[in-house]
Amino acid sequence: MIWDLHCHLSGVSGRTPDERMAQLIEFANRMGIERICVYMGMHWSSDPKPEDFRQQNDEVIQALSHWHHRAFGFAYLNPKYVKESLAELDRCVRDGPMVGVKLWTAHRCSASELDSIVERAADMKAVIFQHTWFKVEGNLGNESTPLDMAALAGRHPNVPLICGHTGGDWEKGIRAIRPHKNVSVDLAGFDPTAGVTEMALRELGAERIIYGSDAGGRSFASQLGKVFGADIPESARKLILGENLRRMILPILKLKGVSL
């Protein structure tokens, strides 16, 4: 069973959300991926105003409309607009079809503005995904590092959080979130550098590692290689490829009355 934590409509060919979704599913089928999580709309927007993230979420909801048996949506929010983000969370997750939250580079995730979003999302049992990178040449202005994630995780020790990209520079990223047992790492969206999955397993344990691709910018294949190519027990591979994500999503599906 393979579930992919990290897909986008951007970077995929097609003029409409539906066309792009069909593309994603077609390639997912080729790679044996059963379910994909999709977030953010047709165009990248790193610091979206509320009307922008609403539109992006509408595009994802549209993309999901024929694919509820194959795909999950996460609501894209911007913590600079807390009130509007909370309302969007209600609209897309509590009252809509989405099951998670995506936070990107608009605001550092260590900031206090995140707290009410995390708490509300946790109440809904929504999966919380935060992009992180450690860039040696310096991050974008408000781009979070795994250390920001660690600070957030420390304030919400009982809320499961996902550290996007394992921080990119994974040897540092894994260390940064290692003490926080509520943080899992996302294997998506960086080069398939050998050793990442083995180190994550050694330092975090299999339950805290989740396969994702960052398709369409990345390929499903190159990122799956991180799991299929890793020298790890089969039991760990299963957890990483899908079982961990399934375990994280099940509670919200249960709340929504959705059975798999």
Binding site: A194, A221, S222, Q223
Partner: peptide, 18 residues
């Protein structure tokens, strides 16, 4: 680009494309 990259990544890319 093995062994710096997982060899399987390259292999699976051949499978992904039609």
């Amino acid at each position: 680009h093995a062994p710096l990259f997982y060899f399987e990544s390259a292999l699976l890319k051949l499978k992904e494309s039609v």
